[in-house]
Design a protein around this nucleic acid. Structure first.
Lengths: 342, 342
DNA sequence: GTGAAAGCGCTAACAG
DNA sequence: CTGTTAGCGCTTTCAC
């Protein structure tokens, strides 16, 4: 079915190595006529080299694997991250293999994703935003398999967003605008089924630090438990209607930012005159019809960084780099301004 | 570096085929002691079979490729679609290769994505929500390469959402609730850089059909050009404040639905008492803090369908199926109700 | 300028 | 019960 060098050989009455070398532009001394015949035959029969056969010779698969969780709360693959990985791989002529695994698949006695049961990639990117799989970690270590962790904190070989610094920048920006009553809002906080994600802790810590440093009183708004999506607008309406409401807010994530925005508008509050809103997300939040000032996660930078360093690890398996926190970028929208009662 | 059968052979003083057969559970008659030794050695040395070597023997790559566009407006990979593809592939022990290509890469003289330049997958899923690449189509055809199109309409070998039927169902649902002034809103309409997507046309057509059939006057709200994100809330406020405003709306996409929702709340309109809102999306729209009634695209079903039929094509390259439109599902939220002035 | 031979890691057929 | 042989498609080395 598939066209092989053998078929080209029969078709052109040339030997297999001859054809191989010509097609790979090894500039050995072949007659132009011969080259022409070979290229012509290849084109005509639609020859494409067999990737596996190449791999087997070279010992390289020309492939990188991206491992993720099936569980939504462990997974985040913004298009910036995916596409930067793809771009970076493409530069090096590498392909991307994807697999999503359920938690159970990584428990002993298996503890190996299908992707790795068979040797079929040169390196591994592991993208877990929470609860990364410990048995996998051991497996990788003992196999000396080149791997880079994305979105999770380890001592080495990982890259993640510097949420703390991002939160500090956001808070200081609001302080510089003249705000003094600035709240941190996190409606996801308190999810019982999973430990609180470090981004939640780090963003709050950064906010807290910036407030304290400026001599301001931190104010955190959250439920005792995670607030159901259903109740977030209602919940926001309550604290927004109090006269002591903050003049600016930093929202943990879009599922917090958007309800706050809607609630503020419902109350007829003028944004940003009466309240400034700032959120965190992979991209500036604007599907809602307004550009909300957003602290943007470095998806693109993480992808590029992860691939670059993974390639170094593949070249030299003893290469180890220490965990890298990448900066978030504050993108201005229309939802922040100096407070009106300044 | 990598552990091979050869190394196991040296380590156990058994022949290579013996080890291969034992590890693959070909139940030929080996001494239990021998089996034990083999498994023990494999575990100890961390043996994993080389995927390429297997492929080369079997003639199958055990891999499916997913091709997409780099261009955002041609791409849509909701998690439902991706994960259903992965699940279905996993059932068959197949891996997923991904590539995103820029339009230029598919123009002559290349016209072949890197993924296909080298023979490295058994089949191809092509996910293009607009402007699918014609040269690729020819390439696939002349190569007899098993491929299935996702999200685009062709005569054969494709699967896409039945947007028309979805819009009819949504509209009839509102009509049945008692609404008579129902509008179709599409703020994306009129994008000059690309032909209008069929989903835009089909959803509107379905709405129009349902309205006409019920003897109601269709009412379409859209700009002459695509309305900039920035102006969508303002724009919505205008028509929502008129007394003749519709009592219910069907919104083309979330970038239309959300601004309409926000505008309605800003005006203090009670939802759904004073206005019912319904949208289209991959999942029910609720990040905003309210469950908006949504006509849900069959991402999961498309993925499953596409893989199933691709596998049939791989088995039998002459297998061809006629283009399949899959139903959308109406998921109830809290934003529709009978009109209050009924 | 070109072809013959060897080998990558694995599996299938057959021999003993 | 186990080993030998051959071959998948390709590239590399070396001989003619």
């Amino acid at each position: 079915m598939a066209v092989t060098l053998k078929q080209l050989s029969e078709h052109t009455h040339l030997s297999i190595p001859t054809i191989s070398e010509i097609l790979n532009n090894k500039n050995r001394l072949y007659k132009n006529e011969t080259k022409r015949r070979v290229f012509e035959a290849a084109r005509q029969l639609g020859y494409r080299p067999n990737g596996s056969a190449r791999s087997i010779k070279s010992g390289r698969f020309r492939t990188i694997a991206l491992l993720q969780s099936c569980q939504g709360f462990r997974t985040s693959l913004p298009s910036t991250l995916l596409s930067s990985i793809e771009v970076e791989l493409k530069k090096h002529g590498l392909l991307l293999l994807m697999e999503s695994v359920a938690d159970e698949e990584l428990e002993p006695p298996n503890s190996i994703p299908g992707l790795l049961k068979t040797w079929s990639a040169d390196g591994l990117l592991i993208n877990y935003i929470s609860g990364y799989p410990e048995p996998l970690r051991e497996f990788i270590y003992q196999q000396h398999f080149p791997a880079v962790w994305i979105n999770s904190k380890h001592e080495n070989d990982c890259v993640y967003p510097n949420d703390g610094a991002g939160a500090i920048a956001a808070t200081e920006y609001l302080i510089d605008l003249g705000h003094r009553r600035i709240a941190f809002i996190d409606y996801n906080f308190g999810w019982e089924s999973d430990p609180v994600h470090y981004s939640s802790i780090d963003r709050h810590a950064g906010y807290h630090k910036a407030m304290t440093k400026a001599g301001l009183t931190p104010m955190k708004i959250q439920g005792e438990q995670q607030i159901p999506t259903a109740e977030r607008i209602e919940y926001s309406l309550k604290w927004l209607s109090q006269p002591s409401r903050p003049t600016a807010v930093v929202c943990y994530a879009p599922e917090t930012t958007l309800p706050v925005y809607v609630a503020a508008r419902s109350l007829g509050l003028s944004i940003p005159r009466e309240i400034s809103i700032m959120g965190f997300d992979d991209n500036i939040i604007e599907a809602i019809g307004a550009r909300i000032d957003t602290v943007i996660l470095p998806g693109l930078e993480m992808g590029t960084f992860a691939v670059e360093h993974l390639l170094r690890k593949i070249q030299d398996p003893s290469y180890i780099f220490s965990g890298q926190a990448l900066s978030l970028r504050l993108e201005k929208g229309w939802t922040t301004a100096p407070p009106c009662d300044r």
